[in-house]
Amino acid sequence: MLKVDTSKISSQQIEAFQRDGVICVRNVLDNIWIKRMQTAVDKNVSVPGPLEVKGIPRAEGSVEHTSSLWLTDADFRALAFESPLAMLAALVLKSQKLNFLTDGFFVKKPKQNSRVGWHNDLPYWPIEGWQCCKIWLALDSVNQENGRLEYIKASHRWGKELREGANPSWFVEPEPHEILSWDMEPGDCLVHHFLTIHHSVTNISSTQRRAVVTNWVGDDVTYYHRPKAWPFIPLEEIDLPEFNSFKAKKPGDPIDCDMFPRVKYR
């Protein structure tokens, strides 16, 4: 059972998350964790992940991304179930119950067009509910030059879902809105609501930018079928034992299953 470390976050930050839809929490993980996860990302960056076709190297791109590594990689599993990240998520969500959805990493290569367009995360997940967040963990220094994230303040309160490249009539490039962004050091974390609209800028620097993400949900979240949502491939093509209980889910069911395990804490 994980013990909540309340020193990692203040009540003011929790309220800021509820109000603004995103916060930056400094020094969440120490150098031991950072070096461990840097090595884990570097090890997996050119290897197909658990939900990718085996035996086919991943196509190289300006942004390297893989998800669900906790299923096969001990370091990513430890990050989810042994690090302070679960504690941070539980506090921010003000939730009595916490489920882990999945992990992933993003590596932005230097001097490439690696911009990620405006979007929010909820339309990519088979869930419904309000208590949901992503923790974006910096493994390198992050700034404007190497691809930091930018958020539209309080856009989670709009109640709108936005996929990258969708260009709905209600969304206009956010000049009228206040933008939140932070320069970061390794071990700092962004925590954002699944409905907070954000993007990331191109890495024009000469160094790569690595980050690990973990996704968390709380008390009110249930299963909800969404087309073109995670895991992004037909369930019948997935031969992993953790998916057996997930495949039986019906809309409105509790999210608890082997694929979205419950994390115990106090």
Rank of each mutant, 00 (worst) to 15 (best):
Met1Arg: 05
Met1Pro: 08
Val4Tyr: 06
Val4Gly: 02
Lys8Leu: 15
Ile9Leu: 14
Ile9Asn: 07
Phe17Ala: 01
Arg19Cys: 01
Asp20Arg: 00
Gly21Gln: 06
Asn27Thr: 02
Asn27Arg: 04
Val28Leu: 12
Asp30Cys: 06
Asn31Arg: 08
Trp33His: 01
Trp33Lys: 00
Trp33Met: 00
Ile34Thr: 05
Arg36Tyr: 03
Gln38Val: 04
Asp42Ser: 09
Ser46Trp: 09
Gly49Thr: 12
Gly49Arg: 08
Pro57Tyr: 13
Gly61Ala: 14
His65Ile: 14
Thr66Ile: 13
Thr72Ile: 13
Ala74Asp: 15
Phe76Asn: 15
Phe76Tyr: 15
Arg77Ile: 09
Ala80Trp: 05
Pro84Val: 13
Ala86Gly: 15
Met87Thr: 02
Met87Trp: 00
Leu88Ala: 04
Ala89Leu: 12
Ala90Trp: 01
Asn99Gly: 03
Phe100Ala: 06
Phe106Gln: 13
Lys108Leu: 11
Ser114Ala: 14
Arg115Tyr: 14
Val116Ile: 15
Trp118Cys: 00
Trp118Asp: 02
Asp121His: 06
Pro123Gln: 02
Tyr124Leu: 11
Trp125Cys: 03
Trp125Pro: 01
Pro126Arg: 08
Gln131Lys: 10
Cys132Arg: 14
Cys133Pro: 01
Lys134Met: 05
Lys134Trp: 04
Lys134His: 06
Ile135Asp: 06
Trp136Cys: 01
Ala138His: 07
Leu139Met: 09
Leu139Cys: 02
Asp140Tyr: 04
Asn143Cys: 11
Asn143Pro: 05
Asn143Ala: 02
Glu145Trp: 03
Asn146Gln: 07
Ile152Tyr: 04
Ser155Met: 04
His156Lys: 00
Arg157Gln: 12
Lys160Phe: 01
Lys160Tyr: 01
Leu162Gly: 11
Trp170His: 07
Trp170Cys: 04
Phe171Met: 03
Pro176Phe: 01
Glu178Ser: 00
Glu178Thr: 00
Ile179Gly: 08
Leu180Tyr: 03
Gly187Val: 05
His192Glu: 06
His193Glu: 00
His198Gln: 11
Ser200Cys: 13
Ser200Gln: 10
Thr202Pro: 07
Asn203Asp: 13
Thr207Asn: 02
Gln208Ser: 10
Arg209Gln: 03
Arg210Ile: 07
Ala211Pro: 01
Thr214Lys: 09
Asn215Gln: 15
Val217Gly: 02
Asp220Thr: 03
Val221Gly: 05
Arg226Ser: 12
Pro227His: 10
Lys228Val: 08
Ala229Glu: 08
Pro231Leu: 10
Ile233His: 13
Ile233Phe: 14
Glu236Thr: 08
Glu236Ala: 11
Glu237His: 15
Ile238Pro: 14
Asp239Met: 11
Pro241Ala: 07
Glu242Met: 10
Asn244Pro: 00
Asn244Thr: 05
Lys247Pro: 06
Lys249Gly: 09
Lys249His: 14
Lys249Asp: 09
Pro254Thr: 03
Asp256Pro: 01
Asp256Leu: 09
Cys257Gly: 09
Met259Ser: 07
Val263Trp: 06
Val263Lys: 03
Lys264Pro: 01
